[in-house]
């Protein structure tokens, strides 16, 4: 067993886990944060993406022990009570989700994308989301939502 201490959505979480525990298993099974999903096993679908120290990372291709001491943000950590984060709100406004399974990963990727470039072009967004797959939307409304979300985030600072 290994002891890990990870800050998740602002809360320190410390526990004993088997070293083979993936970060996504730690989040889903140990903490009950089931908003982070597993869609593949080859690091391609992006359903499991979370932010680690602000960077978008595939939580299914990382051991929880590798995140020891890190600051992790999951989809559950974005909304302020009943008020959606501007990027979440943009996804709703632009109908950027249908089944919603891939959505948390897209939002986390979008947040890093906007952190790196405040006003991304359509091409920036398309290339910036290459690590996320969606089978429902044809990406069309996701691109629009990320653009709008970036603008909204710039407005609120």
């Amino acid at each position: 067993m290994a002891r890990v201490s990870i800050k998740v959505n602002g809360k320190d979480e410390a526990c004993e886990i088997k070293p083979r525990t993936l970060l996504v298993e730690f989040l889903r099974d140990h903490l009950g944060l089931t908003g982070t999903h597993v869609g593949c096993d080859t690091t391609q679908c992006g359903c499991c993406i979370v932010l680690i120290d602000g960077k978008a990372v595939n939580s299914c291709t990382m051991l929880a022990v590798q995140a020891n001491g890190a600051d992790v943000t999951t989809i559950e950590g974005l909304a302020d009570g009943g008020k959606l984060h501007p990027m979440q709100a943009a996804f709703r406004e632009h109908h950027a989700l249908q089944c919603g399974f891939c959505t948390p990963g897209f939002i986390m990727s979008a947040l890093e994308l906007v952190a790196k470039k405040k006003n991304p072009t359509e091409a920036d967004i398309r290339y910036g989301l290459l690590g996320n797959m969606c089978r429902c939307t044809g990406y069309e409304n996701i691109i629009k939502a990320v653009k709008a979300g970036a603008e909204a985030m710039a407005r609120v600072g």
Partner: peptide, 23 residues
Amino acid sequence: RSVRRKEDFRLLTGKGHFADDYN
């Protein structure tokens, strides 16, 4: 009318109930 979705809040905040979410 393009009514915004009732489904979205739970799906956008990680509160959906997908098949693997039950234990």
